[in-house]
């Protein structure tokens, strides 16, 4: 196993390389030091990975610093620290409740799934919601309306008929009024994607300026001020993918595919979307088996997956020179 002396040398080298007066000869000596033992190279890579993670949090440094200090300064294990922790958590929660802003809702949503956890929920009116992993919705049901607010992730809706109360799914980007129906709604980074499986939906942009009727087999996007058709889907294939927790992609940019896969992971995936630009993939990938999904991607595209810990991996484009 890794010996401490070697780790100290590795750390020492890393610091030396950061210093202004580090000479070319020293850099060469470092390269030699690394190359002469794979353990050393591994240690350096891991340390650099950690440093990179910290540097990546620079913009949020105050919040990160506060969180780490409060946790690490806390009473150690097996001392009566649990109550203090609960107090802090409750204090945090009350502040969150008092604060405004959309993202805070995620932690307080009516229904919420963890990454990799699928959930089927029967609503009071017998409509059914299927939440994919890492999703959250709020329900607004009363005598006059049935409304599901999709806060995050993706949901498949099976609407029970009710002539008195229209059924709506809303997101920040717009609303979708069901006309007796099955459909999938997914929140993406810049807009909302609607896939119709059965019957029709009236989709409206958030500002109310555009409305579009979308029929079975069609896909549409909603943004703040627009709704437009983007293509076709095969309803049976979409249903099957939901059943089997698969991600089916046709000639999709790798960055988008990784974003979808990583949403179902507890660990942290890091990749430079710009560096992966131009790589596209067509595949059926398991959403609940990330190792196999990554292996399939590695087989079909020139990318390399590096694992720093079970919770952290980097995905890079392979260098041409190999």
């Amino acid at each position: 196993m890794t010996d401490e002396r070697m780790l100290e040398e590795a750390a020492d080298w890393l610091l030396r390389l950061e210093e202004d007066d580090c000479s070319a000869a020293e850099r060469q000596a470092f390269a030699h030091w690394c190359a002469s033992d794979p353990q050393r190279g591994r240690a350096i890579e891991q340390m650099r990975g950690l440093i990179g993670q910290l540097q990546g949090l620079h913009e949020e440094r105050d919040a990160v610093q506060a969180a780490l200090s409060s946790t690490l300064a806390a009473p150690r294990r097996r001392r009566p620290g649990a109550l203090a922790g609960l107090g802090a958590a409750l204090l945090g929660l009350s502040l969150l409740l008092a604060a405004s802003g959309d993202w805070r809702h995620y932690w307080l949503a009516d229904l919420r799934t963890a990454p990799g956890e699928w959930r089927r929920e029967r609503l009071p009116d017998d409509s059914v919601l299927l939440l994919s992993g890492n999703s959250a919705v709020d329900l607004h049901y009363d005598g006059g309306q049935r409304s599901v607010e999709l806060l995050r992730g993706e949901v498949l809706v099976e609407v029970a008929p009710d002539t008195k109360r229209p059924f709506r799914v809303t997101t920040e980007d717009g609303s979708m009024r069901a006309l007796g129906t099955r459909f999938v709604v997914r929140r993406e980074e810049h807009d909302t994607l609607l896939s119709m499986l059965h019957s029709r939906v009236a989709a409206q942009s958030a500002d109310g300026s555009r409305t579009l009727e979308v029929s079975a087999g069609e896909q549409a996007r909603l943004s703040h001020d627009d709704v437009w058709l983007v293509g076709k889907v095969e309803p049976a294939a979409v249903e099957q993918a939901w059943q089997q927790r698969q991600l089916v992609v046709h000639d999709a940019p790798l960055g988008e595919v990784l974003a979808q896969l990583s949403r179902q992971q507890r660990g942290y995936w890091r990749y430079d979307a710009a560096a992966l630009d131009g790589l596209r993939i067509s595949a059926v990938l398991p959403l609940d088996d990330s190792e196999r999904a990554l292996a399939l991607i590695e087989d079909s595209l020139p990318v390399k997956v590096r694992r720093f810990t079970p919770w952290l991996l980097w995905i890079d484009a392979k260098q041409a020179r190999e």
Binding site: A67, G85, L86, A88, L95
Partner: peptide, 13 residues
């Protein structure tokens, strides 16, 4: 308890 605190303090901040 500590994970909760970590989360709460970060979000609060």
């Amino acid at each position: 308890a500590r994970r909760k605190r970590l989360e709460a303090v970060y979000l609060e901040e």
